[in-house]
């Protein structure tokens, strides 16, 4: 009975975490270049029960479930829809590549091409991190620029750099840095050069699927409620065991 309590609690934990991750996806439904978290849940390892005692009679009794847990969250790298904005500072990658930006603690990767130009003329993200080209940060200076589909940035007729595009699909795991940035979980992983066509005046929207995510959230809430009832049920069974079975007049 106590075991049933813990099994129900494992489901409460899993469904709570699931709700948190789904709420994070939904809060970022309007964040350009956002990559949603994918959720997978699995049964915890089952235990085998064996009857002990007489060494000649050690027999299996059967399996024993120990509940459930969320698997480590994966990040869905599928592209979001590309939307035309006509703004020269909006860039998007049509293909698998990620833009590379310079953070104080090393490079980070994003699909959010809502760029700005800082006071020194460097191309930056909304958070102010500089966008890296193949030869370091890209300086567009004070003039209008155009971007060729291979990522080369032209100011007038002169090429000032070529956007670095990284392929994260081979990374063993990705972590969220914030500011729409991702980074491989293993710092030693060097993402290879990625293909992809860079488009100017286009932005990539969030890849969160609204209907599916809302449905998942509703299911998670109901599963949470059901697990709550299970806790109560286990509790009242225990109560009965203590109050009624344990009483003798």
């Amino acid at each position: 009975m106590i075991r049933g309590l813990y099994t129900a609690i494992s489901q409460l934990d899993a469904q709570l975490r699931r709700q948190e991750l789904l709420a994070h996806n939904l809060a970022n439904i309007g964040t350009p270049g956002f990559k949603q978290t994918l959720l997978a849940q699995a049964e915890r390892a089952r235990l085998g029960l064996w009857r002990l005692g007489d060494p000649a009679l050690i027999l299996p009794v059967g399996p024993l479930g120990t509940g459930t847990a969320l698997e480590p969250a994966a990040i869905d790298l599928n592209p979001g829809p590309l939307v035309e904005t006509g703004e020269p500072l909006d860039l998007a990658v049509d293909g698998p590549g990620f833009f590379v930006v310079q953070r104080p603690d090393g490079p980070a990767y994003t699909r959010d091409g809502t760029f700005f130009v800082d006071a020194e003329g460097f191309l930056t993200t909304a958070a102010g991190d500089r966008v890296l080209g193949e030869d370091g940060p890209i300086r567009v200076g004070n003039s209008d620029f155009s971007v060729a589909s291979d990522g080369t940035i032209f100011v007038g007729e002169a090429a000032v750099g070529r956007l670095r595009l990284a392929d994260l699909s081979g990374a063993p795991g990705l972590i969220r840095v914030g500011d729409n940035l991702l980074r491989p979980a293993d710092p030693a992983f060097q993402p290879p050069q990625a293909g992809g066509e860079v488009r100017q005046g286009v932005i990539e929207e969030s890849n969160v699927n609204l209907t599916e995510t809302v449905a998942q959230l509703l299911v998670a809430m109901r599963a949470y409620q059901a697990a709550q009832r299970l806790v109560l049920l286990a509790d009242s069974t225990l109560d009965r065991a203590i109050q009624q079975l344990g009483r003798w007049d």
Binding site: E20, A23, H24, A27, N28, G30, T31, P32, F34, T85, G86, E87, P88, L89, D112, T114, F116, A126, A127, R176, V177, G178, D179, N180
Partner: peptide, 22 residues
Amino acid sequence: RLALAEAAEGGVIPAARRLSAR
């Protein structure tokens, strides 16, 4: 246009505002 950014601690924050160049 308000640029939204994912918050590291969960959720989303308005990051910066940009005036249209058109």
